[in-house]
Structures are given as structure tokens and as C-alpha cells.
Amino acid sequence: MSETATSPDQPKTGEWALITGASRGIGAAIAQALAADGYGVLLNYRSNHEAASAVEAQIREAGGVAERLCFDVADATASGEAMTALVAGDKVVSVLVNNAGVSADTAFPAMEREAWERVLAPTLDGFYNVTRPLVMPMVRRRRGRIINISSVSGLIGNRGQVNYSAAKAGLIGATRSLARELAKRKITVNAVAPGLIDTDMSEDAPAEMIKHIPMRRMGTAEEVAKLVRFLASPDAAYITGQVIAIDGGLT
């Protein structure tokens, strides 16, 4: 299923940023931050039309440009159709933020294959499905920012998250390799690894987890968005292949 809401408005920069999983949490905060910098933002989401519409409305009310782009990044066919149409259109996508992901925590002996595949698909297949079509257009323009949202679970692991940690660690490996391939084309590829962030995904996190964070608090989606905003900016032109943890000192 796909749905695109169009707008006659053009972004101030003349360029667009595509954020996957942008209907809530970290993705929504990143979209709002990049819109504030003058990018038109493409809000990818899988099914929550109401939430995506709310983010779109907030960006437009603030004077930004936003459009919704509904497709499941884990679905190769749906992603292929959406990305082919996007690349063939008139939008110059210079920033890609691979943020879409889910968790399905359980002890590994009890983890069924469905839980394994459900977590790895949006992160790793989603990275491939969305990133690959945009790479050559970026190469031809010799400009681009690819920012992958990983996790501290991909750096240090976490009990009950073998699937999630594997997905996020795989994304880190992809980040470092792709950065080497694209550096001479002036395209940067970096990863952001959030720790415990106050979003819907962390609402069931045990309170004692905060005791292990040196800052003794959760981070906010807006703090993660500010880091992504920097990595997307001209000031970060010499930063590539890096994994930056934003976790209150946890790692």
C-alpha cells in the first residue's frame, strides 16, 4: 500500500531529506529538525496515517515543507516501487536517514524465527531497499549524507535483544563499509547509536536501567535529532564512517 501527499511548496534549500520511520519518536524529531534547516522532508511510515499526518501538519505549521511517503521499508516490492518513483521525480534527495526499526525482545532460547526476521528485516533489508536506489544519484551530484540510526545495543549488546543487537550491529558494519566506498564522491555515511531514549519504544523499560546511565536519565528524541542535524550539515563534511553514541555516558 502506498500513499503520497503532495505539496506545491519547495524547500528553501532546494533539496529533500528522506527519513524512514518518521511518524513518531526519534524519526519525527529528526524530520522536524531537518525541516527547520530548510530541507523538504519526506516522511516515510508503514501504516500509521494519523501519526504521519500529524507530523506533516506540525512541520507545515512551523513554515517547513513535508510530504508523506507510505511504504514498508522491509517489503522489497513496495520499497522498489516507491523509490523508483522518487528517483524518477523532480525531488533532489541529498539526506537519507535510515531510522525505521522495531524490537521484539525475548530470551534467545525462546526466540522464534518470526521474531528474528521481524526485527532484522526493517533495519537491514530496509537499509538496502531504501539506500541503494539513492546512492548513484548522490554519486552523480557528488553530494549526500546517509545517516543510519543504530543503537548502543549494537555496540555492547543487551540481554533479551539478540535479534535487535544483531540488526543494529549489522547496520554499523554497513555504515563503515559504505562510507569507504563513497568518501571520494563527497558523500558521508555515519551511524548514530542512541541509548535509552524517552519514546514509545522505551515506555516499558525497567526503572532500574536508568541507574546504569551515568547521567541518571533518559535522553530525548530532540537530542538525537540535533546530532543528526549536525551530521547532515556542511560542518560535518569531514566526518564519515563514524558511529556516535548518544547515551548519557553508558558506553
Rank of each mutant, 00 (worst) to 15 (best):
Ala169Val: 09
Ser233Phe: 07
Leu155Gln: 14
Gly63Tyr: 01
Ala205Gly: 02
Ser23Trp: 00
Gly80Val: 09
Ser202Arg: 09
Gly89Val: 03
Arg46Leu: 10
Thr13Asn: 10
Arg159Asn: 06
Gln161Met: 10
Gln32Trp: 00
Asp204Glu: 15
Thr220Ile: 07
Asp235His: 13
Leu231Asp: 05
Gly173Ala: 11
Asp204Trp: 03
Leu182Gln: 11
Gly144Cys: 13
Val92Gln: 14
Thr77Leu: 14
Ile244Leu: 15
Ala5Ser: 13
Leu42Lys: 04
Leu196Ala: 14
Ile172Lys: 02
Val139Tyr: 07
Glu181Phe: 08
Glu223Tyr: 12
Ala193Glu: 11
Ala179Phe: 12
Ile213Asn: 04
Ala174Asp: 02
Met218Leu: 15
Ala236Asp: 06
Met218Val: 06
Ser151Glu: 08
Ala36Gly: 09
Met1Asp: 07
Tyr128Pro: 00
Arg217Lys: 15
Ala78Thr: 05
Leu231Asn: 07
Glu114Ile: 10
Asp198Trp: 02
Tyr39Asn: 06
Asn48Pro: 01
Ala183Cys: 11
Thr220Val: 06
Ala36Asn: 02
Ser103Met: 13
Ala107His: 11
Ala62Asn: 11
Asp247Leu: 08
Asn148Asp: 11
Ser153Ile: 03
Trp116Glu: 07
Trp16Leu: 03
Ser53Ile: 01
Arg118Phe: 09
Leu42Pro: 01
Ile213Met: 11
Arg216Ser: 13
Ala183Gly: 13
Lys184Val: 08
Ile19Gln: 01
Glu67Phe: 02
Ile239Val: 15
Asp204Met: 09
Ile239Gly: 04
Met201Phe: 11
Gln10His: 06
Ile213Leu: 12
Met1Thr: 12
Thr251Leu: 14
Val152Lys: 06
Ala31Cys: 09
Gly154Glu: 06
Leu171Asn: 04
Thr84Glu: 13
Glu50Thr: 13
Asn48Arg: 04
Ile19Trp: 02
Ser202His: 08
Ala33Arg: 05
Ala52His: 04
Asp37Tyr: 03
Ala100Leu: 09
Lys211Thr: 08
Val162Lys: 02
Ala29Arg: 03
Ala66Pro: 00
Ala104Lys: 15
Val92Lys: 14
Asp125His: 14
Ala33Asn: 02
Lys186Leu: 08
Ser151Cys: 13
Ala22Asn: 03
Ala225Arg: 05
Lys186Tyr: 11
Gly40Cys: 08
Leu43Asp: 00
Val93Arg: 04
Leu18Asp: 02
Arg145Leu: 09
Ala237Lys: 14
Ile197Ser: 03
Ala29Tyr: 04
Gly173Glu: 08
Gly101Lys: 02
Glu222Thr: 14
Ala167Gly: 08
Leu69Asn: 03
Gly25Asn: 10
Asn158Trp: 04
Val130Thr: 15
Leu120Gln: 14
